[in-house]
Design a protein around this nucleic acid. Sequence first.
DNA 1: TCAAAAGTGTTCCGAATACACCCATGC
DNA 2: GCATGGGTGTATTCGGAACACTTTTGA
Lengths: 241, 241
Amino acid sequence: MEKKNPDTYFLSENNLPFEDFFHFGLSVDCIIFGYHQGSLRVLLIQRGAEPFKDSWAIPGDLVNPSEDLTSSASRVLKQLTGLTDIPVQQFHTFGSIDRHPVGRVITVGYYALVRSENHHPIASTWASNVKWFDVYDLPSLAFDHEEILTKAVETLRTKVRKEPVGFDLLPPKFTLLELQGMYEALLRERFDKPNFRKKILGADVLVPLDEVQKNVSHRPAKLFHFDKNRYESQKKQLFNF
Amino acid sequence: MEKKNPDTYFLSENNLPFEDFFHFGLSVDCIIFGYHQGSLRVLLIQRGAEPFKDSWAIPGDLVNPSEDLTSSASRVLKQLTGLTDIPVQQFHTFGSIDRHPVGRVITVGYYALVRSENHHPIASTWASNVKWFDVYDLPSLAFDHEEILTKAVETLRTKVRKEPVGFDLLPPKFTLLELQGMYEALLRERFDKPNFRKKILGADVLVPLDEVQKNVSHRPAKLFHFDKNRYESQKKQLFNF
DNA sequence: TCAAAAGTGTTCCGAATACACCCATGC
DNA sequence: GCATGGGTGTATTCGGAACACTTTTGA
């Protein structure tokens, strides 16, 4: 982008010269949520570089001056973990003065929900390791990443009660009890099975498949599929858990 | 803040030198909502400086490198409009590449709700004018401020349905119909009077006062006061409009 | 007396809750 | 058979929506 001469503009009452206002660093952090074996997971990297070398951290990096915030989040996620085609969602910006030891770095937080069995992250560039962690059983994290993660979980909880985003955590075909388990893990709340079924089926966004579970030592459950189109055409408030 | 030597850090795979990542501008924008005569208002300034000189805009300015984001929002608001002691709330960050003609400026959006009759804004520094506008009847705005305002209104609507923030728009003493009118203006929705009363009184957060309206040509309404302590001690979901 | 808004009560309906109970499969 | 989870039905409660009605004031 071509810059006009900034000195012709009167941008602030502050006595500092204009150029001093352009010394912020900007980064993005990507909180990737997954669901596996009944627990809510988050994808973390181990830092292979200072500062906080060897600490676990939320995948994130500095934004390139020529890229958009959202594209930057996707790019950074790909570079560090190899994950692609994951739509991310902004949730909060963190800008405490001392949050980064290198300088004044503001970070914009993004989150996403993925089917963890479809995505096989590989650590690259300065990430020395990538791993899924149980959200409720975390190591200590670099920078202010604990605060960031807490805020992300909070946002996710609010979101999932109003919109059918939870399906992104499950395989395309799932049983109703798997769905219920996912919601229970996410919201840390127990639901009544018959009532959960009624509510979710009453929402009319699930398509029953002609398929059942295999190799289970009990009555096999019917498989369902989430129909996004059906949801879009209704647009009611469906998920009031 | 003292900076360590950045060159000792390996912060990004990108080939650009480290210093190139510290050329972002950072600003804050403050969307101040008020309520007056049945309509939802927003406080705008007229720009007395380039770019977008003379355009109406959301009060905002560049962040000083040594200040916190939230403090910056309060400081900027005070400098441009004279308003003080207004707690602001972050809602979204806007960072399109071309959103600012001078360079790459990221802006963090804050909003607040005020009793407009208590606050008398005065334009200062580079704001040549300040004025309340009906949210649904706006002039065209500078930069991407229309987008920012839309997002702020959206956030406010979501918020007001879950938490009793709306009271910040009203005088300390109000009638139930005034309260209802405020919610109706904010949510652009009509409510049934008897049902509204029942719901709001049932929430048990209003204190009836021994006082009634004066000089009205009809039966004077009882005045109420919002009791924050009572709300805090309950912490239920109260406002499901 | 009338207009205008304040304020109350009652009915209806649908959604959420709390259960009790039956069904299919592997071992 | 029996353990295990899958799946259904029902009775009750609660909150919201609709609406008819009475009350109090100023003019």
